[in-house]
């Protein structure tokens, strides 16, 4: 049934640290790789080497420029560049699930993961319409809806070493900007991070109650405001103010010419 569960035993999801993400797109590539080779239909590309390439991705990294407001201290504050990975937020009130006419979309009671049963999907696209985040993409080759599975085929996979039993985007991130865990447990790594760093929801006004949280970028260091400590300066100081010897003679001779 496409009715949402009243509550889920666990709330698995991601914390994405906008302060740490360097925008390398490694999570995008690893996601495409893992999910093309594993759960469900592969993520196809159309004209990958042609003049109008496009393809299915479950995770995309946007980049935004934020211009802080001018203050009396910082008249012209520097703009901040924020890399912004976006994938399914596995919402508690997932609007994509209830609109599904066939029951292909569902939210799991045991861990809250939102999945698509591709054998039941008619490819009507309504779930992608209902998602405000653009987390669902219709695969142009298979005609079924694709979305982040939170690597459901990794996190419970006992054939993998324990260190690999996390979503592949989390495992890959070289900056440690992505964290995976259970938000229903207040003592989990992700719950603590969210509490400590003021994790927030995307588009809270849409009422989707996303499970995934984003951590805000920290304020950038202000170099021109901090006291200047230049450790090289003493070594680069002028050694002699007045020339002596041959250089002094040359200086005098040239001045007379």
């Amino acid at each position: 049934m496409t009715a949402l569960p009243a509550s889920t035993q666990r709330k698995l999801g991601l914390v994405i640290d906008l302060d740490t993400c360097v925008g390398c797109h490694a999570c995008v590539i690893s996601c495409k790789g893992w999910n093309t080779e594993n759960y469900g239909a592969p993520l196809s590309d159309q004209e990958p080497y042609g003049k109008d390439p496009s393809g299915t991705f479950l995770n995309r990294v946007h980049s935004y420029e934020v211009q802080p407001l001018a203050t009396s201290d910082a008249v012209q504050p520097a703009a901040q560049l924020v890399h912004f990975p976006k994938s399914c937020l596995h919402c508690e009130d997932a609007p994509c699930v209830t609109v599904c006419p066939t029951g292909a979309s569902y939210k799991r009671v045991e861990d809250g993961i939102v999945l698509v049963n591709e054998a039941d999907c008619i490819g009507c696209g309504l779930c992608a319409w209902a998602c405000p985040y653009g987390a669902r993409e219709m695969d142009a080759e298979e005609g079924v809806m694709k979305k982040c599975t939170l690597c459901v085929d990794r996190i419970y996979n006992e054939n993998l070493p324990e260190v690999d039993r996390v979503p592949v985007c989390v495992r890959t991130c070289p900056a440690g900007a992505r964290h995976f865990g259970d938000f229903a447990d207040p003592d989990s790594h992700v719950s603590k991070l969210t509490a400590e760093r003021g994790g927030f929801d995307l588009m809270p006004e849409q009422g989707t109650k996303p499970v995934n949280k984003y951590l805000p970028p920290r304020a950038r260091d202000q170099l021109d405001e901090a006291p200047q400590i230049d450790i090289l300066a003493p070594f680069l100081d002028t050694v002699a103010e007045e020339p002596t010897g041959f250089v002094a003679w040359l200086d005098r001779a040239l001045s007379k010419v």
């Binding site: 934020v66 912004f84 995307l202």
Partner: peptide, 12 residues
């Protein structure tokens, strides 16, 4: 609201 970056300033 889409990016949650509005607290810092005007996102683009």
């Amino acid at each position: 609201t889409a990016t949650g970056l509005g607290d810092i300033g005007d996102p683009r």
